[in-house]
């Protein structure tokens, strides 16, 4: 009897494992299939989706993307704008996050929701307003202009990440440093800064990817000199060159993979999503 029970139990466990595996693979394919199609499209010739795999492989589309669509220049634009957005957002978010995380601020909830507002309202509506102002200020088609537009959605993220980082900073650890004989300056460099550095790094990664991926706000503020990779890719779809567009999206994706890899190696990903435990 006991043997039979064990057999049934094993079977159930196996079944559960089987079910789990099926779910996992479904989820995995659901996320990766569109991506794989783009990847195949970008290296395939004469492939119209009737066969499982492209008949001929080619790197022509990448060559086209680089030469005709001027992708290196556009990638440089995208990175410059992201750098501007990251720098300004971080400079704004450091003191704001410190105040929200460390000080008793009256109306903290209201303040937080105001900071989050640009993220709450539909981006296109917000972008429209930004564009109106920027036309008047001659900020359209300027690196600074597009960067500033991105700050509107990057800074809230940075502020949230940094305020929870600073909030998680244990006062007693700082006190311990003082009791050990460290003055404020040495406490800052030996204790405070190393403890908040992972949080600052995740804030920078967050703002970077947000700016790098941003389409809507760029669409309303870009010009011929400041066109970014997401916008170029979007426009290329309209022009109908699917293969070149696929090659462009592949190029667009590379830095994201790099960032993902970096996050996996350097900082625990669970610190970036949810918790924001800081250290």
């Amino acid at each position: 009897m006991r043997n039979l029970a064990t057999v049934y139990w094993r079977a159930l466990v196996q079944r559960k494992r089987l079910l789990g595996t099926v779910f996992l693979w479904t989820f995995f394919l659901w996320i990766t299939t569109p991506f794989m199609i783009i990847m195949l499209k970008s290296v395939g010739r004469n492939w119209f989706g009737r066969k499982w795999l492209p008949p001929n492989l080619t790197l022509d589309w990448y060559r086209w993307a680089v030469t005709v669509a001027n992708i290196p220049r556009i990638l440089a634009n995208t990175l410059i704008i992201a750098a501007i957005a990251v720098t300004i957002s971080t400079l704004i978010a450091l003191p704001t996050g410190w105040a929200l995380g460390r000080r008793k601020v009256r109306g903290k909830e209201l303040l937080t929701s105001i900071i989050l507002l640009p993220r709450m309202i539909p981006p296109i509506a917000y972008a429209l307003g930004v564009a109106q102002i920027f036309y008047r200020l001659h900020l359209v088609d300027k690196y600074l202009g597009v960067g500033l537009a991105h700050v509107a959605i990057c800074a809230p993220y940075a502020t949230l990440v940094l305020s929870s980082t600073f909030q998680a900073l244990d006062d007693r650890v700082l006190e311990a440093s003082a009791v050990c004989g460290a003055n404020q300056l040495r406490t800052f460099f030996h204790v405070t800064l190393p403890m908040v550095l992972p949080g600052i790094l995740s804030s920078i990664i967050f703002t970077f990817t947000t700016s790098y991926n941003e389409l809507t706000l760029t669409l309303m503020t870009y010009g011929p000199h400041t066109i970014t990779l997401p916008v170029r890719t979007y426009l290329a779809v309209g022009e109908g060159y699917w293969e070149v567009t696929s090659a462009m999206s592949m190029i667009l994706v590379i830095p994201s993979f790099f960032v993902l890899f970096m996050i996996q190696r350097e900082i625990a990903p669970e610190k970036l999503v949810g918790g924001f435990k800081g250290v």
Partner: peptide
């Protein structure tokens, strides 16, 4: 300290 307050890094 009660919560040890060691330097975590």
């Amino acid at each position: 300290f009660q919560n040890f307050a060691l330097f975590p890094h």
